[in-house]
Write a protein that binds this DNA or RNA. Structure first.
Ligand SMILES: [Zn+2]
Ligand SMILES: [Zn+2]
Ligand SMILES: [Zn+2]
Ligand SMILES: [Zn+2]
Lengths: 165, 165
DNA sequence: GGCAAAAACAGTATAATGTAACAAAATGGG
DNA sequence: CCCATTTTGTTACATTATACTGTTTTTGCC
């Protein structure tokens, strides 16, 4: 089981998350011959500002303060497309928003747990889920290629405060 | 394992799918004291026209021919909201579209298999997936409430034609 | 360095999806 | 029938995303 839930859901030194993500991104891009330009890196940095998915127009609003240059929708979406292609971020379809991938480069299933109270999202990849999915879909005659799993619920912190026991 | 993949992915008498869905809808709504008005029933009927998810504006375009009255976005979205609340349809977030639920009324996980070639979507509910998900999310400290699983791949028909063996 | 090709970026306009707010009509119980 | 509630119609607008055109920047090559 591979997950960043520990960091996402508890107090932690988030600067280390950011630094690690940017380091991984630079490594991966140079390996792939992909160009992590200042703009793209700024967008990735913004997405990693927190563990909450960030929308494209929110990124556009935040970019000027981060880079000094203003950015309109197409510019932001081009960067997002690049980051998606490189596997550095994921799109959260149910929120129309984007979240940094904590383990890019490694093949992993895409399962996102979203807290409905605080909005924090953590990613999780587990063989047990993957094999259960492969198994039942194959029995249904379906050849699964990609998966998009978005779970809504309560994170450990928000569960304590007035949520279920 | 509960699924409508057999019907969705193979030749079948689709009129029976439609009739059965509308019958179930009428039953459930009368049980719940919910009002399945002509408009709402027409929207449900349109969504059941095929096993491909249908967008809200496509429904708006098709409604006049189906009912004689024109329908604008808010009207369509209100009917959609009603049908979602009653569990008669599901929203497919990755497509911004809506699909009829083949087993409304019964508690079931929401797992949709979408063929990227023909667009057909089938629903599947399996205990093995549910328990694997509950297990790994609980271990991650997450209290799962609702799930939205959208799988992309190839249906049996499209897999044969030039797809993988 | 100078130059051509490719890539990235900027900007305008517009498409597609979804919602807020209020008016009008239908429904159903006294 | 009369009133309260629900449903539907209508206008306006918000949000998310893309098509397209031209400009700038970068890159590889000489
Ligand atoms: Zn962090
Ligand atoms: Zn990931
Ligand atoms: Zn059918
Ligand atoms: Zn269903």
């Amino acid at each position: 089981m591979l997950t960043n839930s520990r960091a996402a859901y508890h107090d932690h030194n988030h600067q280390r998350c950011i630094d690690a993500a940017l380091d991984r991104a630079r490594d991966l891009c140079s390996q792939q011959g992909a160009r992590l330009t200042p703009l793209r890196e700024a967008v990735l940095h913004l997405i990693w500002t927190s563990h909450r998915p960030l929308g494209a127009y929110a990124i556009a609003d935040l970019l000027p303060a981060a880079t000094g240059r203003k950015a309109l929708a197409p510019t932001v979406y081009r960067s997002i497309e690049f980051l998606l292609d490189q596997g550095l971020i994921h799109r959260v379809a149910s929120l129309n928003a984007y979240i940094g991938c904590p383990f890019p480069g490694s093949r992993h299933s895409e399962l996102i747990m979203i807290c409905r109270a605080c909005g924090t999202a953590a990613e999780l990849s587990a063989d047990s889920v993957d094999s259960a999915l492969s198994d039942v879909t194959r029995r249904a005659g379906f050849f699964m290629e990609t998966q998009n799993i978005e779970l809504l619920g309560l994170c450990p912190g928000c569960r304590g405060e007035g949520g279920p026991s």
